[in-house]
Design a binder for these strands. Structure first.
Lengths: 186, 186, 186, 186
DNA sequence: CATGAATGAGAATTCATTCAT
DNA sequence: GATGAATGAATTCTCATTCAT
């Protein structure tokens, strides 16, 4: 029975994320989520205090996912070039494998009300720590954390967002990795 | 016969963009826009067929603005280094001077329904043409247009989006420019 | 120019009647009528004081049409049997040739607000006068005017209304005529 | 969990029918119905998917009522003359006792969109079966079902519709019955 | 006469949330 | 915990009508 509850909450989250991909934040209502998750609207209020709370909470949780996904792929003993490739390819792969979560997080992070409640830094801290160690060792060029984000994450996300309008993303991705390796390796 | 009031339509657009900055797309309703623009909700339907049409139309129009802003700042006889600096600083400056338009376009471009109707390429074609000429001359490194977008626009937009959580953006911006010059100049 | 005006008003009436057939009275608005008639909504108010007035006025006018149509077909020297056949077939033919007017009048005459303003008696007076003369001559059985309406007009209208759900109306129509002749001829 | 309130739904139906008698279909809005039924407009959507659905569903239900009313009055062992009188008087009485339902059904059945969804035949099938048995026995003249409808129901409905403009309907009604008996009895 | 713009009022419908079971 | 009913408030949008030209 505890299992069933967890399951229910999971279904709610997935329904929400699924709908937001398809219809955008403003096309996603509590009752649509409830219908999609096969629960009653009232049930959603067992788990969340309000729609706003729900969005913020799930956004907070899912914001970490791409970074957790990356952390499972990197190893501290990788070379700097491999690290960069793993991160960039990982970001791209995540956006494909978890299209819904990716789109959800992208949308939420542009939404003024929501983005304030979740800081990018907090989510990416583990991967940043790892990069710091490479920087300390002189394997990766030193620069501010903001520019790590700007160079390591923003460009690949840009490619990922435009994936559907590109014939194939692979050549661009490889080119991007080469450029970043050249730029960031010492 | 009364004639269409251009000023009125402008007020409607500005009200919409203003509200979307403050409250997000899903917090922005036709009646709020009408109130802000000092017109009747019905009047909005004189100019636009539906809320969705309105968003799409204004999104299309405003998507060009940052690139037009850049085009007024670049000169074809600039050196490659100056070109890169002008573009990056221009993007950042635009986001500060036209905070509302910047936030509006960012939000719309993450919204699945809307982003399909406006292609980034179309908006940025003039500036891309210019860059192509630098690439042809061997002043700027050759790479795909997607990676031009990924490197020249995405990172600075990332900084701009996070401006409010940064103490001062200036050092990051300078650092970013240096990195991009190093990377993209031949 | 007087011609053009007449023409414009005619277009308005036809547009209204056409729309009411397709979408019912409550699906028919001034602006839809205007669009269908290729005039401005404001122009409609040149000819009619209000929507209600317009409906009532056109209803009044068109209510007479089926009876005028009949009057052009009957001759005072017809035999009683021929008179009945001509009336019944005429009613049916009218509903086919002027489907829109027929449906419009049927709808309006069931609408409490409208039906009060037009009396059936007034419209049918010419044809009733004719029938009275047949009754006076002893060719057609005497009965109240209400029952003339009830027997000569209501049944054939019933068939006409259900025309689309009948394979072919012709056998029913012939049968009806025979019955009415048998009943009403002396 | 709260359970659906049958009484509430009944109130909604009655409010709708009542309003349609007074103000016509196009003068009857969801909010007026809600007010009349003492529920919230939103509550109506618990029971019906849309206004159109509601009209169609209630029309379908109420279309049967006059025939059910008749069925409670006729007896299979009546003579043919008595059967005709009972049907005709029954129709007339129904229109007086259930003025609202009568007017509602009349209006809906003239409305092109609605009338398609309910077939007269289906509603009247029980009474038609009874008449068929009289026809088989040779007590009532054989004719098509359409002409049964045209002669037994349409004329009396015509009188009923015009009741308010007649001083007293009784003489006409008696006359009509006599005529129909003469015509339809063998 | 003719018009498209403009609008207050109101339409149908949906929303986030609460209630009663 | 879980639910479908219920709803006040809000949504998008249309309406009949008037205005200014």
């Amino acid at each position: 029975m505890r299992v069933r509850d967890q399951d229910k909450q999971q279904r709610i989250k997935e329904a929400m994320v699924h709908l937001i991909l398809r219809e955008g934040i403003d096309g996603t209502s509590i009752s649509k989520i409830a219908k999609e998750a096969c629960v009653s609207p009232a049930t959603i209020y067992v788990y969340y205090n309000s729609k706003e709370d729900m969005l913020a909470e799930v956004f907070r949780e899912y914001s970490r996912q791409p970074y957790q996904y990356l952390m499972r792929r990197v190893r501290p003993d990788m070379g700097g070039d491999e690290l960069i490739e793993t991160i960039v390819r990982g970001c791209y792969a995540f956006s494909r494998e978890h299209e819904e979560v990716f789109s959800f997080v992208e949308q939420c992070s542009r939404c003024p009300t929501l983005s304030e409640s979740v800081s990018e830094e907090e989510c990416s801290c583990d991967i940043l720590d790892l990069i710091h160690s490479y920087q300390a060792r002189g394997e990766i060029r030193s620069c501010s954390d903001w520019n790590i984000g700007a160079m390591l994450f923003a460009p690949v996300r840009f490619l990922a967002s435009n994936r559907c309008t590109m014939a194939s993303g692979e050549p661009q991705l490889s080119e991007l990795i080469r450029m970043l390796q050249q730029l960031l390796l010492c």
